[in-house]
Amino acid sequence: MSEAVTPLNGARVNGLATIADAGLTGMITLRGDLSSAEVKAAVQKATGLDVPAQRQALSGQGAAALWMSPDELLLICDYDGVAETIATLEEALRGQHFLAVNVSDARTYLHVSGTGAREILAKLCPVDLSPEAFTPGMFRRTRMAQVPAAFWLDEAGTFHLICFRSVADYAFNLLKTAALPGGEVGVYG
């Protein structure tokens, strides 16, 4: 059995913000009718979290539920706990029209933290990232330079960013370049 590694293999860089590989993380795509009681109960049972509202992220102990689209969630859990979580979902949703699939190795997951975090993301994404407009708990899928990406902000001010594994190097280098000292814009104070 080969050893699982993340595409960035623990890469980390300090600049205007700290950009760090978040390490192996379990990710499950769950599609179904998000307004149904069955899906709500299944997500609660599998992650201990509610179904997030539109464009929101809910985080718990080692778990998160992210609103991806009107019929899709991304559930975050331990890398080793994915099979068990999917089994719980499948058990809870038996007979329903749904899909739960392991996408842990299809994505790369980064943490962007520090005072410059908002600014370096705002250099790359067409999103208003001012503290008034983008608040903790919000989730946003968008474009980061030339690739799709999604991120949410936690209470500690760290951005959690997800993009496809195949563009992990590109995404990391983008963020690294945007965070180069000397590139301060100071637009968010």
């Binding site: 539109q54 464009r55 689209s69 009107p70 067409p126 999103v127 946003r140 899928r141 968008t142 474009r143």
Partner: peptide, 10 residues
Amino acid sequence: CCGVTGEETE
């Protein structure tokens, strides 16, 4: 569908 107001490139 998701309520995002975004610019054309998205």
